[in-house]
Structure formats: structure tokens, C-alpha cells
């Protein structure tokens, strides 16, 4: 039998402004060179589902870490209470998100078995944030799972601190894998079309997969939105993308 031990634990990493924030990491226990994945949790928080995703990447052979984006507002709080506090405060500012993910990527690269390559993946609000990290950071790939407002303006009077990123597509520094449901309203198929056009015009490397009879949040196994066929195919696409971009030795 192949050795397949994985360690999963809560750690502290240095995030934006040098702040030490909580993070959940899972890593294969053997010494083989590994790529790293930063999991960006969705707006409902640093929750059980996000931690399951981290462990999934470790089982698939990656060093993985999910920073608690709400650590500053609510260290140690229940994930739903922390998410409520963060929402009431206007959400996570983009510059802080970038700093926290940069810290997580740096931590992954500091591991003795790191091959130097790091990717990001985010779901829902984290999808937009994963795209943002591909604009801002030295990473080797980003996976945007149905992130809203990568293109498209938030409604007027919107209290949360998000702005679209379409005008910055030319700054993209890493290949992007996008996973979308054709029944989703945020992002709508028209918005996905618009993003794809911007990527093509800018000559950027990207790969989109768009699923019929599928709406938002289709990877969420414990929600009614779960679409097994789309999610199973989607995970295959995600692991193929990361194998191509993060696999092997640096």
C-alpha cells in the first residue's frame, strides 16, 4: 500500500500588514516535492466545508492552506458569527485579502518540500478574490469558481467593498481556470461571456468550463445547489489544471 498520511492542523501565518492570522493547513506527510494551493473561503466563512476542501487538496498531493480572512474581526469565533461580523463591517477589503493570500503563498513556499509553485482557488466571493490574486501576486494559476463582480457593476448603494476587475484583465500574471453554472445570476452567462472576451482581447491564458442545468455554488455537497455531474467533472478539471501548473519540481 502506498504511504498516504496527511497532516491537518490550525496554524498561524503572517498576513497583510504583518498581522498573524489563523489558517487551516493540510499537507501530505511524505517528503516529495509538492506544489501549494491557497484555498480562499467563501463569504459565509472559514467553515467546515472550506476545511474539507483544504484536506482534499492534501489528499491529492498538494500542500494546502486556507487563511481565516475574518481573523481580525473575530478571532476564535464560530464561523457563522465571524462571517456576520465581517459582513456588518463591509466585508474584506481587497488590499487586506491580497496581503493575507500573499502571506499564505509565502508560507507554502517556505515549506521544506515546496516546489516553489503556488496556485489559488476560491468559491463564490472567493472566486473573485482568486482572480484578484492572479492580478496582484506571483502565483502559477488561479481557479475562479463562480465569482461574482469580476465583471459587472455592483448595484448602487452597495454597502460592501467590492469593485469589478474587468478593467485590469491586462494585468493578469497567471493562467485562470473558470468554473461557472449557466443558470447562475451572479455571475450571469452574459458576464462570463464578457470576461472571456476581455481575456481573449488581452491575450491571456485561460480555460473556462460552463455547465448546463447548474447554478451557483454547485460544488457545495451539502446544499441544494449541489450538481453532482458538474461538480465531479469540475473537480477533474481543477486537478488537471493544478497538475499542469503546479506539479513537478521547481
Amino acid at each position: 500500500m502506498a504511504y498516504d498520511a496527511v497532516i491537518a492542523e490550525t496554524i498561524g501565518i503572517q498576513g497583510a500588514n504583518g498581522d498573524v492570522i489563523g489558517a487551516y493547513s493540510a499537507r501530505p506527510f511524505d517528503g516529495a516535492a509538492r506544489g501549494g494551493v491557497v484555498v480562499i473561503h467563501h463569504m459565509p466563512g472559514y467553515d467546515r466545508e472550506s476545511k474539507e476542501t483544504v484536506r482534499r487538496f492534501a489528499v491529492e498531493g498538494y500542500n494546502a492552506v486556507c487563511p481565516n480572512l475574518y481573523h481580525r474581526e473575530a478571532p476564535g469565533a464560530a464561523p457563522d458569527d465571524a462571517a456576520a461580523t465581517a459582513r456588518a463591517n463591509g466585508g474584506v477589503p481587497d488590499d487586506r485579502l491580497v496581503g493575507d493570500v500573499a502571506g499564505a503563498a509565502g508560507w507554502l513556499r517556505s515549506l521544506p518540500n515546496s516546489n516553489g509553485r503556488v496556485g489559488t482557488i476560491g468559491f463564490c466571493s472567493g472566486g473573485r478574490q482568486a482572480f484578484l490574486t492572479a492580478l496582484e501576486l506571483d502565483i502559477q494559476g488561479a481557479v475562479d469558481c463562480y465569482g461574482a463582480f469580476v465583471v459587472g457593476e455592483p448595484p448602487e448603494g452597495f454597502p460592501l467593498r467590492v469593485r469589478p476587475l474587468g478593467d485590469r484583465v491586462g494585468e493578469l500574471r497567471a493562467p485562470v481556470l473558470g468554473m461557472f453554472g449557466n443558470d447562475d445570476a451572479h455571475p450571469s452567462p452574459a458576464e462570463v461571456d464578457e470576461l472571456e472576451k476581455l481575456l481573449q482581447e488581452a491575450g491571456k491564458e485561460y480555460e473556462f468550463h460552463r455547465y448546463d442545468d447548474t447554478g451557483h455554488s454547485f460544488f457545495s455537497v451539502d446544499r441544494p445547489a449541489y450538481r453532482p455531474m458538474s461538480a465531479v467533472d469540475g473537480w477533474q478539471k481543477i486537478f488537471a489544471f493544478f497538475a499542469a501548473k503546479l506539479g513537478g519540481e521547481a
Binding site: M43, P44, A74, A84, A88, H216, S217, S220, R223
Partner: peptide, 22 residues
């Protein structure tokens, strides 16, 4: 998204007192 209710989306209300913590 709700944490507990059985729909994909719900109308959620959080009554808060930030001075007393999350």
C-alpha cells in the same frame, strides 16, 4: 446562503452588538 435552513438562499437577519464581540 444560509448556514442551516434548507434553501439555496434565504433572507438572513443578524442582530448584533459589536461591542460584545462576534
Amino acid at each position: 446562503h444560509p448556514v442551516h435552513a434548507p434553501d439555496d438562499h434565504t433572507v438572513n437577519i443578524d442582530f448584533l452588538n459589536p461591542e460584545r464581540g462576534p
